[in-house]
Amino acid sequence: MRSADALLEVRGLTRRFGGLLAVADLDFTVRPGEILGLIGPNGAGKSTTFNLIAGALRPDAGEIRAGGEPVAGLPPHEIARRGILRTFQHNRVFAGMSVVENVMVGAHTRFRAGLWSIVGARAGARAEEAAVRARAEELIGFVGLAEWREADVTTLSFGQGRLLEIARAMAGDPRLILLDEPAAGLAPAELDRLAALLRGIAARGIAVLLIEHDMRFLLPLAGRVVVLNFGVKIAEGSADEIRHHPAVIDAYLGDPAALVDAARAGESTHAAA
């Protein structure tokens, strides 16, 4: 694939922690509007990869390009400014703010009014504030939290907190949204709603990079899948190819339940098709 078509291009990405090679010479690309799954057993280097892209960690070697521009090593707020927004595995909502205000923080990089025009209560600043609030409320409806719009976020359930994080990331008009194990800790009914929501996000033309170790959740959802083990990419392809890939089956052999789950997930999608 030519780099011009890629929204996110990762080349030779490497990160060590002391003697441990967490991510080794990793290559993959994310195309506009696709759902790309990044899977692997625990300790495979998924979260490290995620943090390298999001700017929370600096790579030891390799390139990360967003829309052709090199972004490796930039701090997290600069990554967000370039339309790459993330959620956290353990929800990190802003506890002292309402649901709407939380989502409005996600739109931080969209504001143009300077501090002087805010202090002067200029019409432009007020109109911008109103527009962002309206958009935040729309996004809260999109993720299904409309009833809790003005609620204190500390009263939300874990699953609702996850939805709030997604709405917050959406508020920044991302080109790419990074989700760190969004299925973790969710009930089965919540998983179905989450899967539908992620398809809805991709349908809006926003690429989704999904880090997940739950194959059963990920395989039916992802258009393409990259599999990591011990920091190395061992397979890449469609969900079907991954399901029958010998290296993937090997990697998951230590966890037979995951294989059974993956096979079941395959059956249920075939049944649905």
Binding site: P75, L85, M97, E101, V105, V132
Partner: peptide
């Protein structure tokens, strides 16, 4: 009541999440 005040509260509540939102 502006983006600045929300950014300040976001930094107070979770600096990591604030940074991830572009603050």
């Amino acid at each position: 009541r502006s983006w600045f005040g929300r950014a300040c509260r976001a930094v107070r509540d979770s600096p990591e999440a604030a940074a991830a939102m572009g603050v």
